[in-house]
Design a protein around this nucleic acid. Structure first.
Lengths: 121, 121
DNA sequence: GCCGGTTCCTACCGTTTGGTAGGAGACGCT
DNA sequence: AGCGTCTCCTACCAAACGGTAGGAACCGGC
């Protein structure tokens, strides 16, 4: 996957590795949502409008498999639920606050150009 | 799409906007490949192993539509071709050298954690 | 003129992804 | 106990994405 083994793609294949972490539409959203701190499933469902139940489960599962998110069973035990809480792992946090935040920052700075309002020549 | 209109997603929906720029498997690869400078189609096809002709066309088209890549018809006129040359637009360059490079850098620094548990160097 | 390389486009197909619907099991509250 | 809430799973379906195959147009070299 490093410079040698990555002849399938371009030499910058680190990009690929990183992009594949968030290549699933909702992955970056969930990651961003979790930056606010440990969150319960249902709260995520509410905070992230538009995501379906199944997809949130899948996304959380994928993110956990990739080591970006950890699940704390019954951490804070908020009333009214089994209290499965999801939080960013150190890796996930480093990703969310590093590249992901950079991405968001760039998009915010260039939103005018992105929305297609006026692409300067 | 900005802070107000983005209730469909999380408040950080700039992330979404940015990620959608590269959400198509080959987009970041092509963008990275173009960082080396204006490149002809066929050279891209060769430099990026594994991409198919159609997908390169689509990717280039999408990237142009989004204003990240520009096509210079017959710029350098290298021998043996019609000389359609692709290069990063200012926006694309800013994206490729900013967030995309950050992404690659992060992935390179965390490749050990990403690949699972392979011994780092 | 013919041939070959290059740029694109158009089918068609398989896989993946996200969405909807429905249900199972666990637990707290009344 | 009965009920509602929460987690999570399994179909099934539609759309999107990538890949293959084939072909059109364009241009230079022979």
């Amino acid at each position: 996957m490093i410079d040698g083994t990555c002849q399938t793609f371009v030499s910058d294949c680190h990009v690929r590795a990183a992009v594949e972490l968030i290549n699933h539409t909702w992955d970056p959203v969930v990651l961003s949502a979790l930056r606010a701190g440990p969150t319960r499933r249902n709260d995520l469902l509410g905070r992230i409008g538009g995501i379906s139940d199944k997809v949130l489960t899948q996304t959380l599962h994928r993110l956990r498999t990739r080591g970006l998110v950890a699940r704390l069973d019954r951490d804070g035990r908020v009333p009214g639920g089994r209290g499965a809480v999801y939080r960013l792992s150190p890796l996930g946090q480093s990703f969310a606050e590093g590249p992901l935040a950079q991405l968001a920052q760039w998009a915010a700075a260039n939103q005018a150009a992105l929305t297609g309002s006026s692409t300067p020549s």
